[in-house]
């Protein structure tokens, strides 16, 4: 088999995942695109391992071992990533990464009642902040933000 076939396929899959990471707005879709990129790397590793195990008589099978390690690390990554996304969703009421702008300069607090204000579904934790005065609610939002970033 021509080595170019798996190499080109993995390059194209990697760039597809790159597009997904850059263009998607939902955090879980971004995680799916990250999985695509990892799988492209895996295909590259396997193809070059099969090639080198014959031509260079490389007996370590480092490509396949690294592929197994990558798969395990990707599984750990998706578990931690989804836990983080769910925690963010519980705290902020959105998994839209365009609205999570805590560390950006010159933006208001994020979340559904942030600068965009398009998301309107109330969290179970929100009514405590909405029941108070406006200033208190704003301060509570800032305190919650500090709590989430602490």
């Amino acid at each position: 088999m021509h080595l170019v076939h798996p190499a080109v396929l993995s390059a194209l899959l990697f760039c597809t995942g790159l597009y997904g990471v850059l263009a998607r707005r939902n955090a879980i879709l971004v995680l799916m695109s990250v999985e695509l990129m990892l799988n492209a790397v895996n295909l590259n590793l396997v193809a070059f391992d099969v090639w080198l195990s014959r031509t260079a008589e490389e007996t370590l099978h480092s490509g396949q071992a690294l592929t197994l390690f990558t798969i395990a690390i990707a599984a750990a990554e998706i578990g931690i990533g989804l836990a983080i996304v769910l925690a963010v969703y519980r705290n902020r009421g959105t998994s839209d990464i365009d609205k999570l702008r805590d560390t950006a300069e010159g933006h208001g607090p994020d979340g559904p009642d942030g600068a965009d204000g398009s998301g309107s579904d109330a969290l179970p934790a929100e009514p405590a902040g909405q029941a108070g005065q406006a200033g208190q609610a704003e301060r509570a939002g800032r305190a919650k933000k500090a709590e989430a970033t602490a």
Partner: peptide, 13 residues
């Protein structure tokens, strides 16, 4: 956090 958010927010205010 979700369970104790009410008391936490009051303390913060």
């Amino acid at each position: 956090d979700a369970a104790t958010a009410a008391t936490g927010v009051k303390e913060a205010t």
